[in-house]
Amino acid sequence: MTDPLGVLVVDDEALIRDGIAVILEAQPDITVVGEAGDGEQAVRAAQALRPDVVLMDIRMPKLDGIQATTRICAGTDARVLVLTTFDLDEYVYAALHAGASGFLLKNTRRADLVAAVRTVAAGDALLAPTVTRRLIAQMVERGREPPSAPARLDLLTGRETDTLHLLARGLSNAEIAGQLFVTEHTVKTHVSNLLAKLGLRDRVQAVVLAYESGLVVPGRQSRAPRT
């Protein structure tokens, strides 16, 4: 029998922590291994308890969720799923750069929260439906001039590059498969290969790299996939 997924719940409001814990503990394949009320506690708990997933609040005392996420991702194998009421671009961007594998709002339905924990624990990344579009809009608004694509992008095959383009547009594996006329299994293989070649943790980091490298330019239509 597979061990249940261990989750650390981090929020400075006890009532919210308790509510999330109740939702997760009702699942047969998930167990809450601990709770933390600030960023410093979260880092210590993640190091001691080694959870599979950390549900991380953003605004907390002593150490905020962004700094805590950075330390947890650097020092453990836990994947961080940021959960916040603040649907603000700067938090999205900072969380992704800190190493978060997902970003959800606190008004997310309980079923979607549970699904998100499973998705992130499985090694995939997850963003709230508006996050990719907002991230792109932020870059356009700032008028960022993206640097030239790093040389390591040359390591990608044509299909892997096509996959990265579609990832950056926010498409799911199923949608990418439809665009490229391949199976979802093939898409997963392409994603795994490109992450390994680029030395990235997950697809969220791949999306950030695609825009920051200039491989995908905000506001410009992506080129058609190779046939």
Rank of each mutant, 00 (worst) to 15 (best):
T2N: 11
G6L: 03
V9N: 06
V9K: 03
D12K: 10
L15T: 12
L15V: 13
I16D: 10
I16E: 07
D18Q: 13
I20C: 09
I23T: 13
L24R: 09
V32I: 14
G34L: 09
G39A: 06
E40T: 14
E40D: 12
V43H: 07
V43D: 03
R44F: 07
A46T: 09
Q47C: 10
Q47S: 11
P51D: 05
P51G: 00
D52E: 05
M56F: 04
R59L: 13
M60Q: 08
K62F: 08
L63H: 03
D64Q: 09
G65D: 03
G75K: 11
T76H: 08
V80S: 04
V80C: 03
V80M: 01
L83H: 14
D89M: 12
E90Y: 14
Y93N: 11
A94V: 08
L96P: 04
A98S: 11
G99N: 06
S101Q: 04
G102A: 01
L104F: 00
K106G: 08
T108G: 02
T108Q: 11
R109F: 09
R110M: 13
A111V: 11
D112M: 05
L113N: 09
A116R: 02
R118E: 00
R118D: 05
T119C: 10
A121I: 02
A125G: 09
A125F: 06
L127D: 07
P129K: 12
P129C: 12
T130F: 14
V131G: 08
T132E: 13
R133F: 12
L135P: 05
A137W: 10
Q138W: 12
M139A: 13
M139C: 10
E145A: 14
P146W: 04
S148G: 14
A149T: 15
A149R: 12
R152Q: 14
D154M: 12
L155S: 11
L155E: 13
T157G: 14
G158V: 13
T161E: 07
D162R: 00
D162S: 03
T163M: 01
T163A: 15
L164A: 15
H165Y: 13
R169T: 13
R169K: 13
R169Y: 06
S172K: 07
N173S: 13
E175K: 15
I176M: 08
I176S: 00
A177D: 04
A177L: 09
G178L: 08
V182Q: 05
K188L: 08
K188C: 01
T189G: 02
H190S: 05
H190L: 08
H190M: 02
V191W: 02
S192A: 14
N193T: 06
L194T: 06
L195S: 00
L195E: 02
A196E: 14
A196Y: 07
K197C: 05
L200A: 01
D202Y: 02
V207Q: 10
Y211D: 05
L215D: 10
V216F: 01
V217F: 01
G219V: 05
G219M: 07
G219F: 10
R220W: 02
R220D: 07
